[in-house]
Structures are given as C-alpha cells and as structure tokens.
Design a protein around this nucleic acid. Sequence first.
DNA 1: CTTCTCTATTATAATATTATAATATAGTAA
DNA 2: TTACTATATTATAATATTATAATAGAGAAG
Lengths: 100, 100
Amino acid sequence: MKSKDLQAMAANCGSAARMLKQLAHPRRLQLLCHLAEGEKSVGELERLCLASQSQMSQFLTRMRSEGLVDCQRQGSNVFYRIQDPRVRELIAAMHKVFCR
Amino acid sequence: MKSKDLQAMAANCGSAARMLKQLAHPRRLQLLCHLAEGEKSVGELERLCLASQSQMSQFLTRMRSEGLVDCQRQGSNVFYRIQDPRVRELIAAMHKVFCR
DNA sequence: CTTCTCTATTATAATATTATAATATAGTAA
DNA sequence: TTACTATATTATAATATTATAATAGAGAAG
C-alpha cells in the first residue's frame, strides 16, 4: 500500500473513530436509535433510555457540540433530532448487525 | 413502543456498544481495516499503523480476549486475522460512510 | 409576583483508557 | 550455550470518561 493511501486511511480512521466514540456507549447508542425514529424531547429520551436528567442532557449537549444532533425549543420542551446524515447510516448499519 | 421491545433494544445496544468501543480508537480502527484485507503479523501492523510494539500487542491482546480477532503463530511471527464476522460488516459500513 | 416543569450547567469522585517504559517470553540461528 | 528477533506482559503516570449531586435558568400557569 502506498504511503499516500496510508495517510488518507489514517485520516479517515481518525474522523470515523471520533464519531464512533459517541456511539460507543450503551445509552448514547440507545438515544440515537430512538432519535432515528423521529425527534424527541429530552424528557422522552430520559424515559425511553432510563437515564437521569443530568446525564441525558450532558450526552445531548456533547453530541450537539459535535454536530451529530441539533435541537429546537417548543415551549418548555426541547426537541432533539439527528443532524448528521452519517449518524443515520451508522445507526442503520448497527441495526443490521446487532438487531436480528 | 412496548416495554419488551425497549428491553430488547437496551440489550442490543449494550452488546453493540461493547464492540463499538473497540473500534472507537483511531489506531484500533486502522488495524482492523488492515486486517480486513488479510491476515497480518504484529510487526506489519505496527508499521502500517505507526504504533509502538507494546501498544499494538496490547490492542491485539484485548481484541483477542473479546473475540474480535484470533491469531496463529508461524515461526517467530504471530499472524492475526478477524474472527468475528460482525467486525467485517462494521468495517465495511465504516468504509462506505467515511471513505469517499 | 410565585410556583411548577423542563432543561442546562457545574462540580466532583470513581473509574477507565491511553501511552510509555521496562521486563519477560518464545522462537530461531549461530 | 549465546545472541537476536518477534511478541507479550506488567507497571505506571497522565488523561478521559462516567455517574451523581447540586445548582441555575427558561418558560408556562396561576
């Protein structure tokens, strides 16, 4: 393999690993799976994932800062949804591999 | 969503996240990408990934203990290969998403 | 205004991961 | 045997992640 290809590969692995880190946690993966089915409020996600308010909010804040999700306030609720299309692709891939 | 489905989903996310943790590191992902193209010795992987001997060996030992890879000694070299077919599927999915 | 609900932020202790160095082991060859 | 190469293991310090608790802010309702 050429040195140029190895460099490109290392770079791709870097950005892939960075995104994978966000998915590589049981509850974070779970919340993204739920978001893959449609936008949800923080409270809904807490209940669906059995996570604490603080933890869910922290997860969402970090994912938002990395561009994986975005959000929109509606009254006193904040609704999150998947922003980066690669997240959808990854969640779909995970589903194929781990859910049958 | 039914409580039963939520439970199954949580379980699936648990095992998926466990495997994703192994992929969610630049060099570990890189080494798995190289193994996806065929078995390689530890030394080859060190050179391809620019990782130290110790680090590469530690990564491989842990992946072996989780069943992602297995190995076979040939003389003074040890050749590793992907064992779990899900790893191949995941690497292929990563390639689609991050390498074009 | 007060109170309530929903969400975000901050602080922190416990734990896990990471990279590195040093040492050990296994095989090969002389 | 010795010396050499390849790999594994152990120890450890630096760093990152995780879960939890406490506090803060923003909007709705009375």
